[in-house]
Amino acid sequence: MTTATGAHRVELDCPPDDVTAVHEFLARVWQAEPSVSAEDRMALELALVELTSNVIEHAGRGRQLACRVDLSCSSDGYAAVVSDDGAPAGIDPGDAELPDDLAESGRGLALVKMVVDDLRYDRVDDRNRWSLQRARHD
Rank of each mutant, 00 (worst) to 15 (best):
T3L: 15
T3H: 08
T3D: 13
T3P: 01
A4E: 13
T5K: 14
G6R: 09
A7G: 12
H8L: 06
H8N: 10
R9N: 04
E11P: 00
E11D: 13
L12I: 11
D13W: 00
C14R: 07
C14P: 04
P15G: 13
P16Q: 09
P16I: 09
D17F: 00
D18N: 15
D18S: 12
V19Y: 06
V19E: 12
T20E: 09
T20Y: 05
V22S: 06
V22H: 04
V22G: 04
E24D: 12
F25P: 01
L26I: 00
A27D: 14
A27C: 02
R28T: 09
W30I: 01
Q31C: 05
Q31N: 07
Q31A: 15
Q31E: 15
A32Y: 02
A32F: 01
P34L: 13
S35E: 15
S35N: 06
S37Q: 10
S37V: 06
A38R: 12
R41V: 04
M42R: 15
M42H: 14
A43V: 01
A43L: 03
L44R: 07
L44K: 07
L44V: 02
E45T: 15
E45F: 02
A47T: 00
V49E: 06
E50P: 06
E50T: 01
L51T: 13
L51P: 01
T52R: 07
T52F: 01
N54D: 11
I56Q: 06
E57T: 08
E57M: 09
H58A: 03
G60M: 12
G60S: 06
G60F: 05
R61N: 14
G62W: 13
G62I: 05
R63Q: 15
Q64E: 14
Q64F: 14
L65W: 01
L65V: 03
A66N: 07
C67P: 00
R68D: 06
R68I: 03
D70E: 11
D70L: 09
L71R: 04
L71F: 00
L71G: 02
S72V: 09
C73H: 11
C73Y: 05
S75G: 13
S75L: 12
D76M: 10
D76V: 09
Y78G: 02
A80E: 03
A80N: 08
A80R: 08
A80K: 04
V81F: 02
V81N: 03
S83E: 14
S83G: 07
S83W: 02
D85Y: 06
P88I: 06
A89R: 12
G90W: 01
G90H: 05
I91C: 13
D92A: 10
P93I: 03
P93V: 05
D95L: 14
A96V: 07
E97Q: 14
E97F: 02
P99S: 08
D101F: 14
L102E: 14
E104Q: 11
E104F: 09
S105Y: 07
S105M: 12
S105D: 14
R107I: 09
R107V: 12
G108H: 07
A110V: 00
A110Y: 02
V112E: 12
K113A: 15
V115S: 09
D117I: 02
L119F: 11
R120E: 11
R120D: 08
R120K: 11
Y121V: 04
Y121G: 10
D122K: 07
D122I: 05
R123H: 13
R123E: 08
D125Y: 01
D125R: 12
R127C: 12
R127V: 00
N128F: 05
L132V: 04
R134I: 02
R134F: 09
R136S: 08
